[in-house]
C-alpha cells in the first residue's frame, strides 16, 4: 500500500485555522468534501468526533491521527493538516498537536485503512520527517516528504 496514492495537494492544508479539537477536525473533513467525493460531510464529522470521545487520537510528539469508518466514502480518504501554533488535542504527552492525519475508510473494507494507519505511525516516529512537514511551505512539499519517508530516504 503506497500512502502517497491516497493524497494530493487538495487534501492538504498547511495553515489550519482551528484553535480547538473539533474545529480542526471540521477543517480536515471539509478538505475531503471535494477532493474525495464525500457524500455527507456531517456524517463523517459525527463519526470522527464520536471516535474521539472514546479516547483521543492525539499521540506524542505533536501528531494526531483522527480516524473513523463511514458509508459516506467509497474508498480510503486522507486529509493532512498542519497547525503552526498547535492545538490542544488531549494528546498522550499533554503537549499541543501540530500535525494531523485524518483518515476515513469505507465500512465495507478495513484492510487498507489499518495498513495506512500503521504506515503513518511508522513515519511519524522519524524526527526528520515530522520536522520536514512542519517546515513545508507548499502542499507538494508534504507529499514529497511522505514519498521520501516511504522510500527510506528520511
Amino acid at each position: 500500500m503506497k500512502f502517497t496514492e491516497h493524497i494530493d495537494p487538495g487534501n492538504i492544508k498547511l495553515g489550519l485555522e482551528g484553535q480547538r479539537k473539533d474545529e480542526v477536525i471540521e477543517e480536515l473533513v471539509e478538505l475531503l468534501v471535494e477532493s474525495c467525493n464525500v457524500s455527507d460531510a456531517d456524517t463523517i464529522l459525527d463519526a470522527v468526533l464520536s471516535r474521539e470521545r472514546e479516547g483521543s487520537t492525539g499521540l506524542e510528539k505533536g501528531v494526531a491521527i483522527p480516524h473513523a469508518k463511514s458509508d459516506a466514502v467509497n474508498k480510503l480518504c486522507i486529509a493532512i493538516g498542519i497547525s503552526k501554533d498547535g492545538v490542544d488535542f488531549e494528546a498522550l504527552d499533554g503537549k499541543s498537536s501540530h500535525l494531523f492525519f485524518l483518515m476515513i475508510a469505507p465500512t465495507n473494507e478495513s484492510g487498507p485503512h489499518v495498513q495506512a494507519i500503521a504506515k503513518i505511525v511508522k513515519m511519524i516516529k522519524i524526527d526528520r520527517f515530522r520536522s520536514k512537514l512542519l517546515k513545508a511551505n507548499q502542499p507538494q512539499e508534504v507529499i514529497d516528504a511522505i514519498e521520501s519517508a516511504e522510500i527510506g530516504e528520511i
Binding site: 479516547g55 499521540l59 498522550l92 489499518v114
Partner: peptide
C-alpha cells in the same frame, strides 16, 4: 498489527475488536 495500533493508543480496545471482526 491491530495489537500494535492498540499499544500505541491509535485504537481503543472496542475499536480494535471491531476492526478484527471487519
Amino acid at each position: 498489527l491491530l495489537d500494535e495500533l492498540l499499544k500505541v493508543k491509535i485504537f481503543v480496545q472496542m475499536e480494535k475488536m471491531d476492526y478484527e471482526r471487519d
